[in-house]
Design a protein around this nucleic acid. Sequence first.
DNA 1: ATAGGGTTAG
Length: 668
Amino acid sequence: MLKKKKMCQHSNTLLHFLRHVSFPPDAHLLPSALKSCHAQPLARALHAAAAVSGLAEDPFVASSLLHTYIRLGATSAARVVFERMPDKSVVGWSALIAGYSARGDAEVAWGLLERMRSAGVEPNVITWNGLVSGLNRSGSALDAVKALVRMHGEGFLPDATGVSCALSAVGDVKEVSVGEQLHGYVVKAGCRLDQHVVTALIDMYGKCGRADEISHVFYESSHMDVASCNALVAGLSRNAQVSEALLLFSEFVSRGVELNVVSWTSIVACCVQNGKDLEAVDLFRKMQSKGIEPNSVTIPCVLPAFANVAALMHGRSAHCFSLRKGFLHDVYVGSALVDMYAKCGKVRYARTIFDAIPSKNTVSWNAIIGGYAMHGEAANAVQLFCLMQKCKQKPDLVTFTCVISACGQAGLTEEGRHYFNEMQHSHGISPRMEHYACMVTLLGRAGKLDEAYDLINEMPFEPDGCIWGSLLGSCRVYGNVFLAEVAAEKLFELEPENTGNYVLLSNIYASKKMWDGVNRVRDQMKNMGLKKEKGCSWIEIKNKVHMLSAGDSSHPMMTAITEKLKQLTIEMSRLGFAPSTDFVLHDVEEQEKDDILAVHSEKLAVALGLISTSPGTPLRVIKNLRICGDCHEAMKFISCFEGREISVRDTNRFHHFKDGKCSCGDYW
DNA sequence: ATAGGGTTAG
């Protein structure tokens, strides 16, 4: 911002100079004036001044004008200057070719190259580099690679600059074989000592999915600068090598390499993209303690981490920070805030943020519609969906996933079916796996299990684990052993390591008192060496996120937590609020019945919340698995007995408990 | 007095 202001002041000085200086600008003065010119109108003014003084044809002035117009993106004006140049040198041709390449006009650029040759001027390495670089930067990576291949075919050996931008283009189109050839050339030509080349190689291999080569290139070169760090972290993140990225990042830090906001943003994003939310939160704090201020990219990168662990206080402070910095107008920041507030249980705040985003995009709309879906507010989701279309914003694949799942959460079976059809017939979007999964959930919830099974059989592609998992879940609710066995058989094949499926099937057998089945599934699990998935919950108390997991007694307050739970259990049975054993929905954790202390993590989290906050404070808990019926009943009791609003976000949706009732209407 | 390069994002 400041820089721009300075430039404007500078331009004003130049204009002032042009208007008031009594002697005419000369051929020596104009090129330096043009060099410092940063706006098209000023360039045109200088051009006019040159023309009036008869200097426009001077080779230096003309060349400066040409380069200035190219630099400012005024390609046509540059062309006019160029065509009038009496002696068209390789410099002029190169500039013009670079200009058209940077606009993505590959055809024009190639045409100029031909014209140049017929005029008897041969392109040099700089001409070629300009062509490759321009095409790459304009997003025509494929054209850039083509240009590079042709350059090589014509006997021009790319230098470090050429190789760098060619590698960047290769990464964008994932032409790893071309990349490898370039790598070979780099080794032969000896330019692998060039830092930019090393960085570009790391970037290219990262984008082409070759994590092994990233480390290889990095360890072979001994360069440790900001750029190589950024490329490394991004490359490793893309390839899910999060531990490697964290290790190398800390190495850069301890070596005293001066890392910038991009480096810190990259490592935060790396953690978020690879499921390390708490590490991301930690690194975000560390970044600030090192004096690096987050920018408008950092904020949307870190917000999903806050959202995932429901760190509302952190999210709120990111919101305030964005407000102070003027980031709220940024659609990325806005959409990420909408998502964060919705996932932290504050769907009203999410709406407020959403309404204030000046130019909303599909992601913004999806965030708010998905937010309403998560909270079971189907009417609002549908209303926003209609508004979206009124605002001429095209719904995409994600939008329909949100709308159909909203209908499913609220039991609007026919509406859901309607949107599923409309998606195909009115919007020309063919349903993908996730849409079928939503439909199976929707039909399953309504008890239309046979219809759900028919839909699965009609799918034009092989159903995945989510689809069968959804059917199995509905079978648990409606006690359909036959379809449960069909779904489970597929699931054991598709995702043999997913313990939740075994537990679910075992629970279905148990609910029907089919003990043979129960034992068979348990043996199967034991034989495969599978352990029950550990449930864990998070609760934010006074700006700190606490993680509690079932069977883990490492939390410092564990004695008090257990005491509180014991007391609640006593009160519960005293008041006749005994959980029905028949209503153990979605118990994917399966506690050992005889182990009284093995309590589901959400209960531990709520107990911690109860003893650490003042009476009446709402509690928000998030859980990595679905909430079980037992805990669901307990939460209803606690909300009533303790007079607290409790919200539990499980993998599926939000449950808002208040006065002994849940917003899901006991269906989930 | 006139030409060229790498890294981050829902």
